[in-house]
Amino acid sequence: MRRSLPFAAFALAAAAVTIAAVPGVIAQAPPQLPGVPDKARVAAGTYAADPGHTMVVWTVDHFGFSPYTGIFGDVTGTLVIDPANPAAAKVDVAIPVARVTTASAGLTEHLLRAGKDGAKPDFFGPAAADARFVSTRVVLDDDGDEAQVTGNLTLNGVTRPVTLDVAFHGAGTNPFNKKATVGFRAETTIRRSDFGISYGIPVVSDAVALEIHAAFEKQ
């Protein structure tokens, strides 16, 4: 046993040297991602939201026991941006509320069902109109990679001003469709009662945290 330990160490070292000497086996640089957080990659123009990779994640507090999360996907709309004047950027997006997704089929049905006996729905109802956010002001930080984007959010037929905290995530060329793409993360908190959705308050929180993941492709 005493003699086998040095021999084993020698064998492992020899194997490591041999593998390292073979091109492409080890110590390769990781492949570069198509998108990187480099503002120089952002081209001026009009972009369309990529509905397959743009979503609004919402979270409420459920009974004080745990947060509960759902998703609005298939977001559409446009972003107009010029890197020479990013404060003049404009975004106009529609969020299809009727396509809400949750982890519970029962809850999803509750969010979209009609009110009982002709009453107002508890949440959105079966014919929920798309929500819409239209920006009105962009204020950038000193580095230019984060901004506060204020706009009008229309939800459940009610329009209120909302400010998003937005961070630039990355830019580059999509390798599949060859389109210039930019991406952002954003977050804010709204009160659903401001939009006429008061069912279950306070055991289901009035405050709704929104986390937005957005990708836009140049047209």
Rank of each mutant, 00 (worst) to 15 (best):
T173F: 05
I19G: 03
L155P: 04
F72W: 06
D38Y: 08
A8D: 00
A215D: 14
T108F: 11
R185M: 04
Y199C: 01
D82T: 11
R2K: 11
R191Q: 12
D143H: 13
T108Y: 00
A147R: 06
G106P: 10
A20Y: 13
I212W: 11
T163N: 04
A131P: 09
G144M: 14
F63H: 04
V208S: 07
A167W: 12
V60C: 00
T108G: 06
A21M: 15
I95A: 11
G24D: 07
F63L: 15
K178A: 10
A16S: 15
L33R: 15
T188D: 04
H213K: 13
A180I: 02
A114I: 12
V42K: 04
P6I: 06
H53C: 04
T76E: 15
K178D: 10
T136W: 05
A129D: 14
V208M: 08
A15E: 01
Y199A: 14
T76M: 07
R2D: 02
A103N: 15
V17I: 15
A131N: 04
V100W: 10
V97F: 05
G118E: 02
A147H: 11
F123V: 06
A11S: 10
L12S: 07
P96A: 12
E217L: 14
S205D: 06
F216I: 06
A14G: 15
V93D: 01
M55T: 13
H53F: 05
T76Y: 08
P202V: 11
K90I: 14
L5D: 00
T154G: 09
V139F: 00
V75P: 00
G70K: 02
A48V: 13
A27F: 15
S4E: 07
D165N: 10
L33P: 04
T173E: 13
T189I: 12
V138Y: 08
I19W: 11
T188Q: 08
V60F: 02
R2C: 00
L112V: 07
G125A: 09
V56I: 08
F65M: 10
T173V: 15
H53I: 10
H110I: 04
L107F: 15
T78G: 04
G73I: 09
K90P: 01
F216G: 07
A88Y: 00
D142A: 15
D117C: 01
R113G: 09
L111G: 03
F176H: 11
D130L: 03
F10E: 06
R3C: 00
V208H: 05
R160A: 05
S205H: 03
G151R: 02
P86V: 08
A88I: 07
A16D: 08
N177W: 09
P67V: 04
V158A: 02
P96T: 07
F216Q: 07
V17Y: 03
D61P: 02
T54M: 02
D165R: 05
I71K: 13
A131T: 11
I19H: 04
G77S: 08
A214R: 11
A129G: 06
G144D: 14
F133G: 01
T159D: 06
G45S: 05
V25I: 12
Y68M: 02
H110V: 05
L79A: 01
A84Q: 05
G170T: 06
N85H: 03
Y199R: 05
L140C: 08
G170K: 14
V25W: 12
D92C: 10
A171V: 09
S104P: 01
Q32P: 03
R185Y: 11
G115L: 03
P67A: 01
F216D: 06
A14K: 02
F133R: 05
D61F: 02
H169G: 09
